[in-house]
Simulated scan of single mutants.
Amino acid sequence: MQQKVSKTETLDADLLDLRAFCLVVDLASITAAARAIGETKGSVSRRITRLEQALGVELLRRSPRLVQATEDGLAYRLRVGQALELLEDARAAVQQAREKPSGHLRVTAPFDLGLSLLAPLSAGFAERFPEISLEMLLTEAFLDFDADQIDVALRAAASLPDSSLIAHKLQPLESGLFAAPAYLRKRRPPRRPEDLEAHRLLLAQTTRGRATLSFRSRDGLERAEVRVRAAIAASDYSFCREVALAGAGIALLPEVNVRRDLEAKALVPVLEDHVLESDATLFLVHAGTRFLPPKVRAFRDYLLDAFGARGRREPAA
């Protein structure tokens, strides 16, 4: 529902004019009011005159010894005082929200990255900002900010289309080939990309179980492109990781998904002399406005700090 804003002449008054008037009435003295707001007596007197001219009524009765509010002045003082209190409450609420963000925050992210990368970060964020309730929507679909009421999106892509949204680069998403030691004990580990054709591959997001993998040697001297077939294909990387942990084959996985497995030696890298070519990047995306809600700003800054990505901003989403 559209809010109507009054266009009466009283809104043309300077807030300092209104504050000065209230002080004059409360202190029954122009001199005392001027001292309270750090102005001259003449400046405060001109403020009162401006108000009276704008309203077309006499607000004060002035005498050498006394300043008193008229009947209209008393009524005006009451209503103006209430308005000034509301403005002060609004200012205090905004400042408090900035200092202590609160509210419900809806964030969308790819399923696999949400589990492996964002879950521990979300735990830290919730501890730092207990007044914010965080809702994570994990999906491979690009949800619409307006239709789906999204506050922040984490998106994995090579690039993002131009729009009014703001995107921050968090980090490149490098992928690799990984297998359980038990699998590699049963089969000779591949030494070249072409050797993958003799292995059981676990692949996500393929076209009918087939994919083309591009490699370059770490010294940059060789490149290879291999057309492979998945022994097991899935819609998400988490499933492929679990199958790889069970010793069923070599899985192509984002490195962020297997860091703990590598540390525990539950998985080991395959074809370490070669690098899978990928230009995918993890982006943080939010509305392109100068006045972000404090809860959005808090989440954005928390993740930018976590990824060491301050300043990597581009107007695309």
Rank of each mutant, 00 (worst) to 15 (best):
A287L: 07
D14E: 08
H199Q: 11
K41V: 08
Q53N: 15
A198H: 08
G308S: 05
S238I: 13
A123Q: 12
R310D: 03
R61D: 09
I166C: 08
L184K: 01
L16T: 14
Q68K: 15
S235P: 00
G103L: 01
T139V: 14
A157H: 04
Y183C: 02
A180Q: 08
R290S: 14
R200W: 06
L15N: 10
A298K: 08
P181K: 02
R259W: 04
A123V: 09
F291Y: 12
R19Y: 07
G38C: 05
V228D: 11
G176L: 01
K295S: 11
D14G: 03
E131Q: 14
P293E: 06
L221I: 14
A32P: 00
G249K: 03
T108Y: 01
E194F: 07
R200V: 08
E140G: 09
R208H: 15
A233H: 08
G56P: 04
K100Y: 09
A316E: 05
Q149G: 04
A126N: 03
A204P: 00
Q149C: 07
E71M: 13
K4Q: 14
R188G: 06
A309S: 12
G209I: 05
A180E: 06
C240D: 08
S175L: 07
L213A: 04
A69D: 11
T10M: 12
H168N: 09
E135N: 09
E88A: 10
A266F: 04
L160G: 06
L15H: 09
V80S: 03
R188N: 13
F145C: 04
E263F: 02
R208T: 14
E242F: 09
P293F: 00
N257P: 00
V44K: 00
R290Q: 11
P193L: 04
L16R: 13
A317I: 05
D195L: 09
R191C: 05
